[in-house]
Write a protein that binds this DNA or RNA. Structure first.
Lengths: 214, 214
DNA sequence: CAAATATAATTAACAGTGTTAATATTTTAA
DNA sequence: TTAAAATATTAACACTGTTAATTATATTTG
């Protein structure tokens, strides 16, 4: 017997390789985008055979889902930094800004997290509708909106309706920006010089409207 | 000389085949989704060799772009039916409803039009930033928002800011619904029974907020 | 320690994908 | 009818995810 630790060395090594595969996938993903993540390229970079990956992940979508989770962890860190903002409406504003900034700084992650079908389908198939990471993020927002309501914001509107609404706006901004649709429309229909400010304008408009709800 | 018509028979036949390719692509697309549209499958169904398609479309993304345009034409028809709604705010509401309904009835088209990178990249590369179809749709909305403003809606907010904002919300609703994110969040965080109404609730909230702007 | 067993990794192969170059066929013009 | 132009095809390249069968490597047992 050699299992003095909770994990035997074999299991340990297995987890190491599993992590290495994910790290290489993440590296490829961030450097060359979603489309460039292929089983064969990952295997090459790790130094193993393509089929070996299937001993550690059941699927390609399983690898993609693991990346998806990494993204949610990174977003959670962004949100966690806001716990000490006292004024609830300022905290809500900061959350929105952080969300948008995250999408701009990690466009590939954002697309994977909110704009691509594969990972969420993987959740539906394999995770029995738990999925802590996503619920946590939305929960944090719900709490802040509730806090705002207690301070007199948002009138008689329902808590969940407000929270969802803000998410819709912010996701709308991010997703249309990332796909180039926003720039396209702004370039065609709105005065010159506003190009770069479209995003800030959009956020300002949201804040103005939300603050004005009686 | 036989070119009594503006188009010679050769050009006519060429356009016929070009259209046939597009029709088959559309059929495959609507029946089996975006991922199932492959050059080889289209060629099989048309009854030509895969490489022949490259004599009519420069690329696969060219075919996809043609589908993308079909989608915008369909949406334009939905919007055109609203010209005779007199009250501007009611017209704006109807536009929003039509937009959402379109996304639900033609989820694949909607994804192609607003959630997938390929077609808009094709526009950027090949169309010298004109692209009438998209500008027309947004223009129709801009006009309606302007009309609303003249009737006292939306306070001092900028015309373009309001129009963009509404688009963000509505697109946020549609895209998160289509990817399954909305259902996922609603199922986890919101009371039972609201499942099916999440979309209507979202739209109602938008209307309430927009109407309340002073 | 050696043999038997369980685990891990590999090669070969299947069925796809977009796309290009070279070749063959058909249609048009002289 | 023959030369030229347009159209279509076959063969091939370099990829993709994935599975079955096989080999190599550890681990456990006799």
């Amino acid at each position: 017997m050699m299992e003095t630790t909770t994990k035997s060395k074999r299991v340990e090594r297995k987890e190491e390789i599993r992590k290495k595969i994910l790290d290489v996938a993440k590296d490829l993903f961030l450097k060359h985008g979603y489309e460039s993540v292929s089983i064969r390229k990952i295997a090459d970079k790790v130094g193993i055979s393509p089929t070996t990956i299937y001993l550690y992940y059941q699927d390609k979508s399983d690898v993609i889902y693991a990346l998806h989770q990494e993204g949610f962890k990174a977003l959670a860190i962004q949100f966690a930094a806001l716990k000490n903002v006292e004024d609830p409406f300022e905290r809500l504003k900061a959350m929105g800004r952080n969300y948008i900034d995250f999408s701009l700084r990690n466009p590939d992650f954002y697309q994977l997290m909110f704009m691509i079908k594969d990972p969420i389908e993987f959740v539906e198939r394999n995770c029995a509708s738990e999925w802590e990471e996503g619920e946590e993020a939305f929960g944090a927002m719900l709490a802040t909106v509730a806090d705002c309501k207690e301070h007199g914001y948002f009138g008689k509107l329902d808590l969940h309706s407000i929270a969802l609404h803000i998410w819709f706006v912010v996701h709308g901004i991010c997703s249309l920006k990332l796909q180039g649709h926003l720039d396209h429309v702004v370039k065609s229909h709105i005065q010159e010089g506003k190009d770069a400010y479209a995003l800030d304008d959009a956020f300002e408009t949201l804040i103005t409207i939300m603050k004005g709800i009686k």
